[in-house]
Write a protein that binds this DNA or RNA. Structure first.
Lengths: 231, 231
DNA sequence: TAGGATTTGTGCGTATGTATT
DNA sequence: TAATACATACGCACAAATCCT
């Protein structure tokens, strides 16, 4: 019943990738909140397949740290704990900086148009945004900016780290523990700064801007944790 | 009937990890040279299990880029092509530098004794070393020095990149396209430099030394390729 | 303490795809 | 071109582990 999975021209690997992306999206958008049990049989039924291909997708999600399978118990969506993810977050900060030096790619007009569309979406966020829609936009922005480097191993690691750490923000935002207006404005400002740096052709600057914002975003999450501890 | 796989106290994940490590070792030590076809049935038989757990191990090796499975054809050990692995190598260089700044760990006496033993082994290499035994030593050194950082995501990525790129050296060394005495001496010198930096407590220096040697090692491989092209 | 319900892990027959003759 | 051989991918039945009553 899901889209993009039952197309006839799809190869095995395409289906695997599609299923993996769908489940990853559901986990990171908290459709499956931490602690949710994912049933192999139920998922297989939903996507019109059997347990075998589902198990392979779940195994990959487990390697990525998004779920955990225990024999006899089940496959459970992992908790988004900031203490455990701090190392991943700091690594992500440093790797983002590397996108400016490892195989940077100067994009073409299509990219600039796409980026402008994303900025427009960000502007609308301040009016009608929700934590969820904002996260969806953030994911689109991430995937877009990832094209600024052609280093495939770096791209893969960054993608992994992004989805490992992204739930932290959404969990806090939904619990109204973040100033959403602040987050919206900062994000839009980041996009504009990136646009300016891109126009000047300075891909290293683009990477540094991203790095700075990821670092600051993490610090905002940290300060929130500290406030929660002292309360 | 391999070792470390049929122990009774082992859990499922332990067996998976053991099988994965064994196959990875065989691939990277060229027991399975590039192009080798790995039979699910034969491997299952060898390790006294069924195809299902083997398939999961092979799927993981495929994600790591060491094998490639094609429906109807087989699971083939990938080629160690320096052009394709150049991006991975350069990323590895940068990540190695990060081990000095991301959760560095000052080791204890056990580590120093272990390192001394490795240096002793390296000294013997100059006399009775083979490309294979040298690679085995290099792997042990890598695993040992990896303990100098506690950043788990960084450790995982570095391990992946190490085994992705390590075959390049061994392929060349076996074809006698490298000056082995040079390689031995450089390696021993690197270990001694690391030992000195460690004694002074400068973990950042240790990381920079490693970074420099990985970069130089790659350049030696590159110059070898260029000579081959011009010949 | 024991037993049943539920879940993941395993084993294997079959389907599907590929290459070769 | 068709048929045969052989590999991976899939689906299902069963085993093993865990939890709850």
């Amino acid at each position: 019943m899901a889209d993009g999975v039952s197309d006839p021209g799809m190869t095995v690997k395409d289906r695997h990738a599609a299923l993996h992306e769908i489940l990853r999206q559901r986990i990171c958008l908290l459709d499956y909140p931490p602690g949710t049990q994912l049933s192999e049989i139920a998922l297989a039924k939903e996507f019109g397949t059997s347990r075998t291909p589902m198990r392979r997708v779940l195994a990959r999600l487990e390697e990525e740290g998004l779920v955990q399978s225990v024999h006899g118990v089940g496959t459970i969506v992992t908790d988004a704990d900031i203490t455990e993810l701090e190392q991943a977050y700091r690594l992500r900060v440093e790797l983002t900086a590397l996108t400016g030096t490892l195989d940077p790619v100067m994009p073409g007009d299509v990219f600039f148009n796409h980026l402008q569309a994303l900025i427009d979406r960000a502007s609308e966020m301040a009016v009608s945004g929700t934590p969820r829609s904002f996260t969806e936009l953030d994911m689109d922005v991430f995937q877009t900016l990832l094209d600024l480097t052609a280093n495939e191993p770096l791209r893969q690691v960054l993608e992994r780290l992004y989805y490992q750490t992204k739930r932290l923000w959404l969990v806090r935002a939904i619990k109204a523990e973040l100033d959403l207006q602040d987050e919206y404005n900062i994000f839009r400002h980041e996009l504009e700064a990136i646009q300016i740096a891109l126009r000047s052709g300075d891909l290293s600057a683009v990477a540094q801007i991203q790095r700075a914002h990821i670092s600051m975003s993490f610090n905002r999450l940290l300060s929130q944790r500290d406030e929660g501890q002292s309360a």
